[in-house]
């Protein structure tokens, strides 16, 4: 029978702690003094890659890769969602796809983010905007380009805009963004 190890192999890496201040003897007085000890802190890493399915919304992303902006519509009422939904929230019926790429659109609300989540910090400042489309009942959250993020103004609300698509699709909602309609 092979000899079983009775000691863990120790490796370099992570924290290598050779000595944390601690009483030489664990007398009651010394142990009571430990209540005054500062907390120890360590780093814990947490990384994970998710396989995220767009499910019933997948055609919307496929549309972006082909420079088409799709929307969902309840066939019976015509209620139309700029951000796609597989089912209408009023009738419960399955929605159909329609193409709104050429619909007149304008800025409904916006902000300029000078700070942000870690993932987007390198992109600051960037302009977030909610876009409204003619004949569409709900809005679309997007990035607005072609405006000066250092000079935001409420005048941007109501500005006519049009979609522009990334040539190299990332299969993200940022494959489409909007620019002022009069810009090339």
């Amino acid at each position: 029978m092979a000899k079983l190890p009775n000691q863990r192999e120790e490796k370099l890496g992570g924290y290598i702690v050779h000595g944390v201040p601690f009483p030489v003897e664990t007398t009651p007085e010394a142990l009571a003094f430990l209540k005054k000890m500062a907390p120890l802190e360590i780093e814990q890493e947490y990384r994970i890659t998710y396989l995220h399915s767009y499910g019933q919304d997948s055609p919307w992303f496929a549309g972006l890769t082909n420079r088409r902006l799709l929307a969902s519509q309840a066939a019976s009422s015509g209620y139309t969602y700029a951000t796609p939904r597989g089912h209408d929230m009023y009738s419960g019926e399955e929605t159909v796809w329609i193409d709104i790429t050429e619909r007149p659109a304008q800025v409904h609300a916006f902000t300029v983010c000078y700070f942000g989540s870690e993932e987007f910090l390198p992109e600051t400042p960037f302009v977030l905007a909610l876009i409204e489309f003619e004949g569409v009942n709900t809005l679309l959250l997007t990035r607005l380009m072609g405006v000066d993020p250092e000079q935001p103004t409420l005048e941007w609300i109501g500005m006519s805009v049009r979609p522009r698509f990334l040539r190299n699709s990332k299969l993200k909602p940022t494959d489409v963004y909007f620019i002022p309609a009069e810009k090339n």
Binding site: Y54, A109, C113, F120, L128, I157, G158, P173
Partner: peptide, 25 residues
């Protein structure tokens, strides 16, 4: 929404700022 909102620049202060620009307008 991690399909449609977060990837655009997920940041709650940004979301609330958009709401208030509309409120202001």
């Amino acid at each position: 929404d991690v399909s449609f909102d977060y990837p655009v620049g997920g940041f709650y202060s940004g979301y609330y700022a958009m709401m208030v620009t509309r409120h202001m307008k």
